[in-house]
Simulated assay, not measured.
Amino acid sequence: MPATSKSTAPQASGPGAAAADPALPKANRRVAQAADTRAHIVATAGRLFDANGYVRTTIESVAAEAGVALQTVYNSVGNKAALLSAVLDAAASGPGARQVLELMQERTRNAPDRGALMVVLADWFVEVHQRTGRIMTVISQAAAVDPDVAALEQHRALQRLERYHEAAAAVRERGGLTSGMTDGEAAAAIWSLGHPQTFRALVGSAGWTVEAYRDWILRALTAALA
């Protein structure tokens, strides 16, 4: 990675970039401009990863396509693995750009009973896998050639497992897990059933429709967490 230099990131241009509001205080305008620049770089990287794959997508090509200096990419996002991680975050968050953890906590709180919570989980897996499927494939392929991406893939898998402890606790609060399953075991069941590779195998390789996958995972989660 090039040494960090003190430079001002140019205002992002292109899809998804917005001009900073001149009515904002100067410091806030700089923050807004930096956020727009970062979002523009991440969106550009996502398109290049999708079109060219991980190996052929370089930091230099991202910078050139985004119309920013090379150092701006490093300053705004980080190295190539960090770009991939940011693209995954953006894909998982979706158009509203809400943090996934915050979004799922809200949906979980609003589920009135165990059946509704199973629907929340099933619908989420359908939603997130369709948005992140392509970038997850890039990550899986890149992990074989880049140790940083392999570490990223492992970290994200363990992060998902940890976060599903909250879902398991919510199931228990709504009368589930009566078989004696612990919250940790329930989190592992949610994690394995909703794993991105399972979605890719069933929908991408086995030819299942998304609707068939959704029906299956709803039944599987309900049976596993009863």
Rank of each mutant, 00 (worst) to 15 (best):
M1N: 13
M1E: 10
P2L: 10
P2T: 12
P2I: 09
S7H: 14
S7N: 07
T8S: 10
P10E: 08
S13H: 06
S13T: 15
S13P: 02
P15L: 02
A17T: 13
A20H: 01
P22I: 03
A23G: 06
A23C: 09
L24S: 13
P25W: 02
K26N: 12
K26D: 13
N28V: 12
N28S: 13
V31S: 15
V31I: 15
Q33M: 09
Q33A: 14
Q33Y: 09
T37N: 12
T37S: 14
I41W: 08
I41F: 08
V42E: 11
R47T: 02
R47A: 08
F49N: 03
F49L: 00
A51Y: 11
I59K: 12
E60R: 05
V62T: 04
G67C: 00
A69R: 13
A69C: 03
A69L: 05
L70W: 14
T72P: 01
T72I: 02
S76K: 07
V77G: 05
G78S: 03
K80M: 03
A81R: 14
A81F: 09
A81Q: 10
A82C: 05
S85D: 15
D89N: 03
P95T: 02
R98W: 04
L101D: 13
Q105Y: 08
T108V: 11
R114K: 01
R114N: 00
L117F: 04
L121F: 06
L121Y: 06
A122S: 01
A122G: 03
D123H: 02
D123Y: 04
W124Y: 13
W124F: 14
Q130T: 12
R131M: 03
T132M: 15
R134Y: 08
I135V: 07
I139M: 10
I139D: 03
A143M: 07
D146R: 10
D148R: 14
V149L: 11
A150V: 05
A151Y: 04
L152K: 09
Q154P: 03
Q154C: 09
L158F: 14
L158D: 15
Q159Y: 07
R160D: 12
E162Y: 00
Y164T: 07
Y164A: 01
H165C: 12
E166P: 09
A167G: 03
A169C: 06
A169K: 01
A170P: 05
R172Q: 05
E173G: 04
E173S: 05
G175C: 06
G176R: 05
S179G: 02
M181D: 02
M181S: 01
G184Y: 01
G184H: 07
A186Y: 00
A186N: 04
A188F: 14
A189C: 11
W191Y: 03
W191N: 10
L193C: 00
G194K: 10
F199E: 12
A201H: 15
A201W: 11
G204T: 04
G204S: 05
S205A: 15
S205L: 13
A206I: 05
W208T: 01
T209P: 07
T209D: 14
W216T: 10
W216I: 09
L218R: 11
R219H: 15
A220F: 04
